[in-house]
Simulated assay, not measured.
Amino acid sequence: MSKFPEVGAKAPAFSLKRDGGGEVKLSDFAGRKLVIYFYPKADTPGCTKESIAFNGLKDAFAKADTAILGVSADPVTAQDKFKAKYDLDFPLGSDEQREMLEAYGVWVEKSMYGRKYMGIERATLLIGRDGTVAQTWPKVKVPGHAEEVLQAAQILT
């Protein structure tokens, strides 16, 4: 199992199925800044609040020349429904095989009520124009998070 990428490391390449069909790859964002936020499950309360917060700031992220990508292990059909229900205006990647999730170190052992299971740790990365990790947010708490990531994106050249 990989660990969460460190600042300054090259972002691991990926190619994922995405909402609406087709694929989304790291190389699609070459020369731009990219926010990748990992969320446990589409259409659950925390994931919905986080996605809506990023979507609400999409124009400010665009002004900062920063793309947004949400990633979970949900199937494409679930991503499609989630995106349509909340009118999200950025791609959602589907990693049912968990290859990217493991490469980015967010597929982790979790525990709830004493039961251990594998799942996605809510985390975010800001990747610079050169493809290196500029900033990380492991173990994200949703309130105010999208705003904090936007500030970092605005400062990053």
Rank of each mutant, 00 (worst) to 15 (best):
M100K: 00
A9N: 13
Y117H: 10
Y37V: 02
A62Q: 12
T157E: 11
A9V: 08
D95P: 04
I155N: 13
A152F: 07
K110Q: 13
K25A: 11
E121V: 11
E147T: 12
E50P: 00
G56I: 09
K41R: 14
A73R: 09
Y37C: 01
T44D: 09
S72G: 07
D65N: 15
M1E: 13
R115Y: 15
K58W: 01
T132Q: 08
L57V: 04
T157D: 12
K141D: 12
G119A: 09
D43C: 07
K41F: 08
A153P: 05
G105E: 01
S111V: 14
Q79C: 13
A30K: 12
G46W: 07
I127F: 03
Q154F: 08
F38N: 00
H145S: 06
L16N: 04
G20C: 08
E96G: 10
D19C: 11
I120E: 03
W107V: 03
G56L: 10
T44Q: 06
P91C: 10
R18P: 01
A53F: 05
V140Q: 02
A64V: 11
W137H: 03
A78F: 00
E96F: 04
L57F: 07
K41N: 10
G21F: 11
G119Y: 02
V108M: 08
S94F: 06
S27Y: 03
E102L: 12
T44R: 08
A67F: 04
A67W: 01
G46F: 08
L57A: 05
V24C: 03
G46L: 05
K41Y: 09
V140A: 07
L126V: 03
S51T: 09
T132I: 04
T157Y: 10
A11V: 04
R115N: 15
F54Q: 00
F4P: 01
S94P: 04
V7A: 02
Q151F: 15
Q154Y: 07
V140Y: 00
Y104S: 01
E121Y: 03
D59Q: 13
I155S: 15
D89P: 12
T44P: 07
V71A: 04
L125I: 11
R122P: 02
D19P: 08
F29V: 04
G46D: 10
T124R: 03
Y86H: 12
T136F: 07
A73K: 12
L92A: 07
L101T: 03
N55S: 11
K83T: 15
V76N: 06
Q97I: 14
D95I: 05
K58F: 10
E147W: 10
P5K: 00
A30R: 11
K17G: 03
Q135T: 13
Y104I: 05
E6Q: 12
D43R: 09
V133R: 02
F82V: 06
P138D: 05
A53S: 12
S2D: 09
R129Y: 06
Y86F: 12
Y86L: 10
K25S: 13
R98C: 07
Y113G: 09
V71I: 14
V140M: 08
T48R: 04
T48W: 11
V133K: 00
K63E: 14
D89A: 15
